[in-house]
Amino acid sequence: MATKVEVKQLLEAGVHFGHLTRKWNPNMAPYIYMERNGIHVINLYKTVAKLDEANEALKSISASGRKILFVATKKQAKDIVAEKVANVNMPYITERWPGGMLTNFVTIRKAVKKMASIDRMKKDGTFNTLSKKERLQVDRLRAKLEKNLGSISEMTRLPGALFIVDTMREHIAVKEAQKLNIPIFAMVDTNSDPRDVDYVIPSNDDASKSIDIIMTDVTNAIAEGLAERKSEKQSDNEGKESAEPKAKKKAAAPAEEPKAKVEEAPKEEVKAAAPAEKPKAKVEEAAKEEAPKEEAKTEAKEQADDLTKIEGIGPKAAEALTKNGVDSYASLAKAEPENIKEILTEASSRMAHLDPTSWPKQAEMAANGKWDELKEWQDSVKGGVE
């Protein structure tokens, strides 16, 4: 497990330096320690606490297999973010936020697919059949797409969360994420509004050292989540492999049972006919005793399902549903969309716009283990949420 960042390290990196007092946002008051020489000083103890909270959430999101999109277009942050995030294989935007990146994701995916089609043209020789002018135009288009969208070429679905450096500069990304109810993690300076962010990390978002230390700690947490996911997959595969030989042995064993029954048959003929009905009563009693056990097993299976794998359900929506007893795919499949809507609206006004109409249908596919069918539905019908 990676070591947690300490207050002394944050202090040395200048994370505590805020903006001028005349530029402050009053909503940042709980995170401000004092004022010195006309500049606000951030409370680093609260920064450490909020950073740990954000890291836990990011770790769980990455462990569930969902992508986290990093956004940092300011000059002093773009190179640091690109370097750190590339190490954990997450998508990032460091050039310019393309309008509609999230709200019009289907169109953005078409632009990404255009890059892939150009690459195929170059491989199969079609590119060489074009005129010199056309080849030049295609190369320019490919370079432009690579610059703006190259880092998200593997992001086939909407991200599970956004991590933003400087919410004032990336206000369009914040608005799009809020509209789709995607959790927002952000480095928030004293001039920004923390109410727009789900997981606030109060810190200096202008100094390169400050950005570097926060990004290092965040990406380490994501890497831990990915490692956990990998180990779980390996253990599942090993369990399946060990279960197969046992199943084969069990299938082969019953073939010898009829011989024993044939040898015991003459001894049983001596017994009276009347007691022959007693085993039936025992069988019925055994069936009654096993019924509650089977019900307990089905109840156990319905527990601890990851509802965020359903398209449209974010971590906060999943938490609200779980608190109200809808904590498994089976229970969600039986729920009425109107009741789900009431639960979400009571939990938070920001989730009132969500449309849960398709959630029971998706949950039914998940409960039956039809993951390929669910993924195909998400990609073709809605664009999907990872």
Rank of each mutant, 00 (worst) to 15 (best):
L10T: 04
L11M: 13
G14T: 04
G14Y: 01
V15D: 00
G18V: 02
M28R: 00
Y31D: 03
Y31C: 05
R36M: 14
N43Y: 14
N43I: 07
L44I: 08
T47I: 06
T47V: 05
T47F: 09
L51E: 06
A57I: 10
A57D: 07
K59H: 09
S62V: 08
S62N: 08
V71R: 04
A86D: 10
V88I: 07
M90F: 07
V106E: 13
K110A: 11
M115T: 06
M115L: 08
S131W: 02
N148D: 14
L158R: 04
G160K: 02
M168H: 13
H171F: 14
A173V: 06
K175I: 11
P183A: 07
F185L: 08
T190I: 06
K209I: 02
K209M: 09
T216R: 09
D217I: 01
T219N: 05
N220Q: 09
I222H: 02
A227E: 12
K240M: 13
K248A: 11
K248I: 09
A251T: 05
A253P: 03
E257A: 14
P266M: 10
E269C: 09
K271D: 10
P275R: 06
V283N: 06
K293T: 05
L307W: 00
G314L: 02
P315Y: 01
K316H: 14
A320H: 00
T322A: 13
Y329V: 01
K334C: 06
E338H: 07
A352C: 04
L354P: 02
K361V: 12
G369H: 07
L374W: 01
K375F: 10
D379E: 14
V381F: 12
